Amino acid sequence: MEDSNGGASHAVHISPEEVQRFCEFLYRRTGISFTEGKRYFIDRRLEDRIAATMSPSFQAYFSLLRADADHEIEHLINSFTVNETYFYREDHQLRCMTSSLLEVIASQKKPGGTVRIWSIPCSTGEEPYSIALWLMENWPQVDSYNVEIVGSDIDTRALRAAAEGIYGDRALMRLSRDLIGRYFRPMADGSHQIDEGLRNSIEFTRANLIDAKDMALYRDFDIIFCRNVLIYFDDVSRRQAAENLYDCLRPGGYICLGHSESMSRISPLFRVARFPDAIVYQRPEADHG
């Protein structure tokens, strides 16, 4: 067997009971719930981390993990997160942002006021950069307000890639040649790096959706994009994440979920907001109870 870097890794037997202990640990840390159907995925990544730390057994690795020696929890979480995305994904929500949401938000602010937008999880940066590009191309009032865009993720490796802003053809497949030519510079290996000004305009930070202390650092967002992550959580973690996100929105702010996710089935805190381009969810202007 080979590890994720192409080298040989030693085989370590992991019992069903040990897998369950590990999944419970990962769940408490991230809210991500893995079932027996993901056993191969779990085993492969666990074996890679056991080999990388040169642990002689699962028990030895698990002890190291719980002690967080050499920041192993961070390395483990990075290996278990999925960062599959591309520019202008689910662009109907981007259209909704500029045609409907920002019209409401801007009407409540003075020119020069701050509009805050959060992408969580932001993965390797395609979503927050898409938001910035879309605003520049499609919102005539973009220069009339101080727009702050924050991208956050639990995966520190993905955040480093986001800050670097280098992408291959697949990530850029939804962008026109004109957009790529104006906002990206070609690299020697055929990839493209996004404009330095755009890279500097977005703040990238680490955040854990189910960690109340982490989430308490983020407040007063007008729009939150939290797409295609809650499907990996169980009901308890989804509710916790929803409550944390609710606190991060200003009253009247909006949250956009993935196309297969419904806040109505997760939490009663939000109201459904229907617009021509998309259905989103809103923190009510006035909290009741």
Score class of each variant (00 low, 15 high):
240 Q>H: 12
190 G>W: 14
214 D>I: 02
233 F>Y: 05
222 D>K: 08
210 I>E: 04
220 D>I: 07
220 D>C: 10
211 D>Q: 09
190 G>H: 03
207 A>K: 05
220 D>K: 15
237 S>Q: 09
235 D>N: 06
205 T>I: 15
231 I>E: 02
235 D>E: 13
206 R>M: 12
220 D>A: 13
191 S>N: 15
212 A>W: 03
207 A>H: 03
208 N>E: 09
214 D>A: 08
222 D>Q: 13
234 D>I: 13
228 N>H: 01
239 R>W: 09
196 E>I: 12
208 N>H: 06
225 F>L: 04
201 S>H: 10
201 S>V: 07
201 S>D: 04
233 F>G: 00
227 R>P: 01
238 R>H: 13
213 K>H: 11
221 F>Q: 09
190 G>D: 11
234 D>A: 08
220 D>Q: 15
206 R>N: 12
208 N>K: 09
211 D>N: 13
207 A>S: 13
216 A>Y: 09
210 I>H: 01
200 N>E: 14
215 M>K: 05
224 I>T: 07
199 R>E: 07
221 F>Y: 15
236 V>N: 05
230 L>R: 00
233 F>S: 00
237 S>A: 15
222 D>W: 11
197 G>F: 02
201 S>T: 07
227 R>Q: 12
202 I>A: 02
229 V>D: 00
222 D>T: 15
226 C>N: 10
206 R>K: 15
236 V>M: 10
216 A>S: 15
218 Y>H: 15
213 K>D: 11
211 D>C: 11
211 D>W: 06
212 A>S: 14
225 F>Q: 00
196 E>H: 14
208 N>R: 05
199 R>W: 04
239 R>K: 08
215 M>D: 00
227 R>F: 01
199 R>P: 07
224 I>W: 01
226 C>T: 06
203 E>M: 11
238 R>K: 15
213 K>C: 07
237 S>T: 11
237 S>C: 10
202 I>V: 07
227 R>S: 01
232 Y>Q: 03
223 I>M: 14
194 I>M: 03
193 Q>F: 08
232 Y>R: 00
224 I>M: 09
223 I>F: 14
236 V>P: 05
219 R>N: 12
234 D>E: 14
219 R>E: 13
238 R>F: 08
226 C>S: 14
225 F>P: 01
226 C>R: 06
209 L>K: 02
240 Q>K: 03
236 V>G: 01
233 F>M: 07
190 G>N: 10
205 T>D: 01
230 L>I: 10
200 N>F: 08
